[in-house]
């Protein structure tokens, strides 16, 4: 929709040309969420989509995904050498948005939104990723400040993150070892094309044999735990739900969502145990 209060747009192709942030500024990446709602507080758009970061860079130690990497780029990347990467197309196709947004919507935008229904943060938590966060310099020439936080510590509630004013996500750094994991994603949604009401990612580490579960969608923000093989999975899910607030909205109440998490966790683990599982 038209963002009626916007008075200016800046769209640098060089990160160094990003302006100092001031009140009324809004970062826009793909814009697929920003332009889908009224933005009464925004006066200027700072567009990150043209910044020439490498969408996906690989090194011996890690895989670095730029914040403005689009779903299309993420889906098109050749993940054959990095098996866990096959989770990305699955996660993307699990969004309620159309394939028509894939060339616009970005990983950073999804993370920045910090929805309970968000797709990327649970995936990155399951992969032990860290986010590189940048606060632009407050004056020209002054250095920007950069910090690295773990994906698990980034989101703190529904639409809440640790981002400070003006701070943005530059990149997502995933250790290469994590890509050796076997991942399974299971989701529940009210309808075939609606967003998730609950989601579970099960991950098995080939070296240690440890299995983790990342629960999201039903909770106010995602949580990951290592499975204790000696305890029934439902009880472990319940234990998490006792400490991490559940979500209640028109898509489902708390108790129901907890049931979904239990069911999905059981399903995901069963799929993980199957000999040739698909994500």
């Amino acid at each position: 929709m038209d963002l009626i209060h916007i008075e200016a747009v800046v769209r640098p192709s060089d990160e160094g040309d990003l302006p100092a942030y001031s009140a009324g500024d809004a970062y826009v990446s793909g814009g697929t969420w920003l332009f889908s709602e009224d933005q009464p507080a925004a006066r200027r758009l700072i567009d990150l989509s043209a910044i020439a970061w490498t969408p996906i860079a690989t090194s011996p130690d890690e895989i670095v995904i730029a914040a403005n990497c689009t779903y299309r780029q993420l889906e098109a990347f050749d993940w054959s050498a990095l098996p866990a990467g096959r989770i990305f197309p699955v996660a993307i196709r699990s969004l309620s948005s159309s394939f028509k947004t894939y060339g616009l919507a970005t990983v950073g935008g999804n993370i920045g939104l910090a929805f309970a229904k968000g797709m990327m943060t649970p995936v990155f938590i399951a992969l032990d990723a860290s986010y590189e966060l940048v606060t632009p310099a407050s004056a020209p020439g002054a250095p920007a400040s950069v910090r690295l936080v773990s994906a698990a510590a980034f989101q703190t509630g529904v639409r809440q993150t640790i981002l400070g004013p003006g701070e943005y996500v530059r990149a997502i750094r995933v250790p290469r070892t994590a890509f050796a994991r076997r991942l399974v994603l299971r989701r529940a949604a009210h309808q075939a094309s609606s967003h998730v009401t609950a989601m579970v990612i099960a991950a098995a580490d080939p070296v240690s044999g440890a299995v983790t579960l990342t629960l999201s969608g039903a909770l106010t923000y995602p949580v990951k735990f290592t499975l204790d093989p000696a305890t029934p999975v439902a009880a472990q899910v319940d234990a998490v739900c006792a400490v991490r607030p559940l979500l209640a909205d028109s898509h489902g109440g708390e108790a129901y969502r907890q049931t979904l998490l239990r069911e999905l966790a059981t399903e995901a683990l069963a799929a993980l145990a199957a000999p040739d599982h698909a994500a």
């Binding site: 929709m1 747009v9 769209r11 826009v28 814009g31 697929t32 332009f35 889908s36 758009l45 567009d47 989509s49 159309s98 394939f99 028509k100 947004t101 060339g103 616009l104």
Partner: peptide, 19 residues
């Protein structure tokens, strides 16, 4: 509102005009 941008379908209500 679907249109094509350089041959790719997009929802034109989500696309900033300047893009």
């Amino acid at each position: 509102c679907t249109v094509w941008l350089d041959g790719d379908a997009v929802q034109s209500c989500l696309l900033p005009a300047y893009r």
